[in-house]
Simulated scan of single mutants.
Amino acid sequence: MEGVWFQELQTKNLSIGCSVKEVLLKQQTDFQKLQVLDTDIWGRMLVLDGAIQTTIEDEFVYHEMITHVALNTHPNPKRTLIIGGGDGGAIREMIKHDTVEKATLVEIDKAVIEAAKKYLPEISVAIAGNNPRVEVLVEDGIKHIKEKENYYDIVIVDSTDPVGPAVGLFAKDFYAAIHRALKDDGIFVAQTESPFYNKDLIRRVFKDISSLFPITKLFTANVPTYPGGLWSFTMGSKVYDPEKLDMSKLRKLDTKYYTPEVHKASFVLPKFVGDLLK
């Protein structure tokens, strides 16, 4: 192999690699190792602690699915929160909903936000453009959520993998704090890793969220740069069932992956994934 290659050890037995045209940024932040790479196949790529977070070419899948499924399930989301997501992609999608009056982003690592603004403008447009509906807070998301009660309509946890600063974002007491921070008809969604490589985590998280929310659903999307490609998200809802909607009445959005039909289909789980939840 010629030239420079990036390789992510996705599990102890699996890696993914791609050729790199240029290393745009390499930085040790207060929390993690941050890199921005310009790759031949995926374009510019954000990497944290050696793990791919997002790329210009496939980011729309993850960011659309982690946001629009919940936002279209809620009939009138006004006050919304994203914990993590310092690249800005989830906030970008969130404010496509006209009902949203205030979308708050809480990211613990300011360096991620600044890197996204400079090197990933297509993704970070909502936070880079000083949109009046967007509030950006550089602080600990766990602390932030514990200080709120009956406040948010939607909470999205757009976290990194459950290591380092993100470990607490996969804990039951954190989900309980989110439940308290949500209004009586609030909805919560978290990214919950790969059904191929994170079976135990998915089982545990689904059980924890089910103990708090009367409606708990797992849905999936295909994110090619994430381990296994098939990626899971877990929703906890106090009132609204994402599968019992009039799909013809969902808000029409400018998207590349998400559609009302995809919304419905994302809850149809392969048997091995459904078996994880039993």
Rank of each mutant, 00 (worst) to 15 (best):
D49I: 07
D49W: 07
V61R: 05
V268E: 03
K252N: 05
L105G: 09
P227Y: 00
E107V: 01
W42V: 12
P260A: 10
L245A: 02
F188D: 00
M45V: 07
K117R: 15
S210V: 01
L25N: 13
E64F: 08
I66C: 06
A190G: 13
I91Y: 05
V268C: 08
G141P: 07
L218M: 13
V4N: 10
S237I: 06
T160N: 00
R203H: 06
F206V: 05
K146H: 10
P165I: 08
N198A: 06
K249C: 06
V223W: 05
D254Y: 10
G84W: 01
K102Y: 14
T67Y: 00
G164T: 13
V125R: 03
S194A: 00
D40Y: 15
A166S: 13
G17C: 14
A103K: 03
H179T: 11
K172Q: 14
V20E: 07
C18S: 11
I178L: 02
L218Q: 04
L105N: 10
V100P: 02
I83W: 00
T225I: 15
I178G: 08
G50T: 14
E22C: 07
G129D: 01
H144D: 07
D200I: 12
Y197R: 04
Y151I: 02
L269M: 12
E114C: 10
S232E: 08
M94V: 08
K183I: 13
V4K: 13
A181D: 07
Q32C: 12
A166G: 09
W5E: 08
Q10W: 12
A126G: 12
W5V: 13
A265V: 12
D58T: 12
I41N: 11
P75R: 04
D87A: 09
I145C: 04
P227C: 03
Y226W: 11
I66K: 02
L105H: 14
V125H: 03
P270F: 14
L253D: 05
G50F: 13
K102D: 14
I156K: 02
H144R: 04
P165N: 09
S210P: 04
T54N: 00
S15P: 01
S15E: 12
Y258V: 09
G274T: 11
T80A: 14
A221I: 08
E139Q: 15
P132H: 00
